[in-house]
Write a protein that binds this DNA or RNA. Structure first.
Lengths: 346, 346
DNA sequence: ATTGGCAGTCTCGGCGTTGGAGTGCTAACG
DNA sequence: CGTTAGCACTCCAACGCCGAGACTGCCAAT
């Protein structure tokens, strides 16, 4: 984008003023308002000329001829990339968040649910949270509990103390004693390993002859299948906030969006692609491939639980949002839960 | 309610026709429509007289003078108590549900999430699902996994193979070997017990002198605290369905309802009070204490996982809903997941 | 008890009007 | 050449009005 530099200082200031005013009020911004509130030294006629240029270059649009200007997706993009002033969450918000996580729930799920709740509350948008991707996480502990003679519960404690469980049906009856022995062996062999590494460890488990070997393989296969196949669930909260937004008085728009949010699979795909090294990622309007998000923006970032355990957290709302404020608050919650989860993960 | 019997046969038929027509179409029902569609033998004038009586006794109301009649809460109540024909879910729906749970997810949470999804889909309302109340469930297996020298992960397998977990901080460093020994002892002592019974078992655990005893008490205390304090979470799905309902074109109503649904605590209270012995419980409009549910109805029932493990499942929607159809489908899903969960619980 | 007839009432949608907001253009100015 | 005042123009949103349609309640007749 060469255009990112082809705006002179004054055009930048005007674009910034339009975005700021429009995101705050929801009313298209006219030249008179701009002259009065932001550019006292200039006349409205001058600003009209500049506005016309910004419409011509695609940064602004007008809903109809006698209305003020609103930013286009491109205008928002330029704003967040170059014009947005770095913001810090206000002390009141910081305190609220700190208090919410002071006596944080003692489990991953609890922390994530609370994060979704808090983020929805302090941003006034719909929050989105995914649990950490565990396919590459290392195994810390394995336990086999006999349920029936021919079925066992496999309990897996991963790095970060994430717990996975699954019921496995065995080919023949196996006692709890045998299962415990196998669990002990598994703990010895696979502890500290994960992902593709597991496969190689299985093949080193001993000669093929043993009955045990077949059971172990079954157990490990189910673990691996479970880990890889399980589609990421996207927690969300704050749908009620959307109803207050004037852009959703027409429920038809909301319907498509809600379907995306409640169904989750498509969102999961988007959230998984958030880069771990980036700070905060912003996806604006039509930059989204999903049609349901055409008039929405996402503000996403990652949080960290342990070495290989990272998840995504963020919000989705109308493109007209207070980006500076939202970015600061998403970042705040991400940092806060990273700390809370580090406490859980040791 | 003496009034439940003071309607003669024809008034009952007319009330039934009004409820049926209005729930199906959403349009207030006039005397001409009734005469043409349901009572060809009668003139519209006769029906008008009856309608006027039903308004006088509080079973019907009219939005304004020149509109047709709609049922009041009392009218709906009379309908579901005395007039509603028992309905069976159609084969297509039965097949859909069966297929959805044929390869049911292997965990309680998975089944409940799927149940919420399916119920929302086939009833076109918002589904509500609570996990079984576990405070009285018996303990099947206990495992202690060392995380840090001074913290351990307590894993509890309850009846029905429900898994609970919690991190417990210990007063002094304890090795995995010691923990395993304690777990073995605990398994021996408390297996098959639960609820208040646990407390007595703890006091029988041996002399007070031992270091172990203190650790065990701490573990068990945390287990009990966890079990009792944990507020029930209400899963939900299908909020998007509400947007299609004409009663929610005004989003302000939806807002209050959504707050209830997303916050969940108040709904949890309502759902917990559903009687286990009843078939399906219906709560209509102002029978709800919450103001957000004034214009909503709930159709709730319980499902069964194991002896002491019962949860609630149902839907919430506008009072104008197809009660017969919804009742049949809620019942269907309840039965289906009870079977699926019995498979998990053995 | 039932019914046809009829006047009365209310909502809803369409339509024209009006006020206001904001623009683009033009010409003048420094 | 950038800036500015003035002005005609456009468009929307709100308002009020009107008529069509729907349904009622009542009355008198059967």
């Amino acid at each position: 984008m060469i255009e990112s530099t082809n705006l002179d200082g004054r055009k930048q200031q005007i674009l910034k003023a339009v975005v700021s005013d429009y995101t705050a009020t929801g009313i298209p911004v006219g030249s008179q308002v701009l002259a009065a509130k932001y550019f006292i030294a200039l006349s409205s006629a001058t600003i009209r000329n500049e506005l016309a240029d910004l419409v011509g270059t695609g940064y602004l649009a007008q809903p109809h001829t006698s209305a003020g200007r609103i930013p286009t997706d491109r205008g928002y993009r330029y704003f967040v990339d170059f014009l947005m002033a770095p913001e810090a969450a206000p002390p009141g918000i910081r305190r609220t968040v700190r208090q919410e996580f002071e006596h944080a729930p003692n489990s991953l799920e609890g922390v994530l649910e609370k994060a979704a709740m808090v983020l929805a509350q302090i941003t006034g948008n719909v929050s989105l949270v995914t649990a950490p991707e565990t396919s590459e996480a290392r195994i810390k502990h394995i336990d086999l509990v006999s349920l029936e003679p021919t079925s066992t519960l496999v309990i897996l404690v991963l790095e970060g103390n994430v717990i996975k469980q699954q019921i496995v049906n065995l080919e023949r009856a196996t006692s709890q004693e045998d299962l415990s022995r196998m669990a002990a062996m598994l703990n010895h062999k696979v502890r500290g390993h994960g992902g593709a590494d597991l496969t190689t460890r299985i093949s080193q488990l001993g000669p093929d002859r043993s009955e045990q070997r077949r059971i172990l393989e079954k157990v490990l296969e189910s673990i691996k299948a479970y880990q890889s196949q399980r589609q990421t669930v996207v927690l969300h909260d704050g749908v009620r906030n959307l109803l207050r937004q004037p852009e959703f008085v027409e429920v038809s728009r909301l319907e498509e969006l809600l379907e995306l949010i409640e169904q989750g699979a498509q969102l999961a795909g988007i959230l998984q692609q958030v880069a771990f090294d980036k700070d905060v990622e912003i996806i604006i309007g039509r930059e989204n491939t999903s049609s349901g998000l055409r008039e929405c923006s996402l503000v996403l970032t990652t949080y960290r639980m342990a070495e290989r355990l990272r998840g995504t957290i963020g919000i989705v709302g109308p493109t007209r949002m207070l980006y500076g404020q939202v970015v600061a608050r998403v970042r705040l919650v991400s940092q806060t839960i990273s700390e809370a989860l580090a406490g859980l993960a040791h």
